[in-house]
Write a protein that binds this DNA or RNA. Structure first.
Lengths: 190, 190
DNA sequence: CTCACATACTCAACTTGTTGACTAGGTCGA
DNA sequence: TCGACCTAGTCAACAAGTTGAGTATGTGAG
């Protein structure tokens, strides 16, 4: 239901093709709203039918034509209404945590490997987010940015993603320590 | 696909009715895997058909009969296989963050109210998790617990939930400050 | 004595999300 | 010049998640 709102929020930055939106989602929105390109294209069609966005076809040489979408005023109104509405609590689905829950009677070594992988992944994401942040700040300090920027929303959601991944890294390290000690203890007792 | 794995991991604690599983999910698993009671009941039926769990009907006076589910050895094998498999990255969906992303051109006051609500919610969750943790520790220090406990998985996932909510509280506080300053600046410039 | 809340589910309809394959051209490196 | 990857999508089929209502009984608070 609120993929559309995420799309509209992304379109506040200006018109964009479905393909670009997919990339933008992947880069920053994925942090709090994930979706596949297919979902995006389907939703964009529906939103156009509903008059929330409008499309402009751009003919391109050497490349397939693309459709650039932009918010209509109806879409803008809808989005404002959404910001004023009640929001559902965070929905998380994390298979790794399911595996950790079951680790004691499962393949502990494999779970440890998955945690290490997750930690690396999180570290890579932190790097990407930091680069995005530097780009947003554009040489300014955070205070200067917050003073002068037109929009602070993208910055705040970026901060959330950053601290989530940092927290992830800490938890991974802690869990690995616990599982390693436990392994050593079990080895010693056999 | 891996709701079943989450259910099986929960059944490691012993047999349980669908109703109790729903409550358990709500209390602790919700932290990394959310689902509605309907999803649970449907999945339990399928899992029974697939031989991953088995049901025992318990007749009750004064109450509807209930079915207690427990893991079969096939289910246990499946779960072990799952712990050894590759896991999809975390999938988060958070409407509040979508609203924050769009806050600059939306109803900022309403978004601030939502953030305050989220912060209270997170604080309540921290309380609940701390109580759950005290119950798991059962008077022991963390080190003692990690030495003696049969399962550390539930503790580790609980820690993840705790730090997630603490991080949430910090982010809410920070975002409110930013949005308030911004509001003050905009007021001053009109 | 009523109302809300707890136990313990079931059913149906609908909306979302996921997977895999297909079209069609372009660029870049080995 | 071959294969891999990028742009920019479309289509179909299926799996999973969501919502709302219904069934039937019991307990405790006001």
């Amino acid at each position: 239901m609120s993929l559309r709102n995420a799309v509209m929020a992304a379109l506040l930055d200006g018109e964009s093709s479905g393909y670009d939106l997919a990339k933008a989602f992947d880069a920053s929105v994925a942090n709090f709203w994930i979706c596949t390109p297919q979902q995006l294209y389907r939703e964009l069609d529906r939103m156009e039918t509903d008059g929330l966005i409008e499309a402009r076809t751009v003919e391109q040489e050497r490349r397939p034509n693309k459709r650039l979408f932009s918010l209509t005023s109806k879409g803008r109104d809808e989005l404002t209404r959404f910001t004023a509405a009640q929001h559902k609590p965070t929905a998380i689905r994390d298979e790794l945590l399911v595996a950790v829950l079951a680790a004691d009677s499962g393949d502990v070594e494999a779970v440890k490997a998955s945690i290490r992988e997750r930690r690396q992944w999180a570290e890579a994401k932190i790097q990407r987010y930091e680069r995005l942040r530097a780009k947003l700040l554009d040489g300014r300090t955070e205070d200067e940015f917050l003073e002068t920027a037109e929009r602070v929303g993208p910055y705040l959601t970026l901060l959330r993603g950053l601290s989530f991944e940092r927290d992830n890294v800490r938890w991974c390290a802690r869990s690995l320590t616990v599982l390693e000690r436990r392994g050593a203890r079990l080895d010693a007792s056999t």
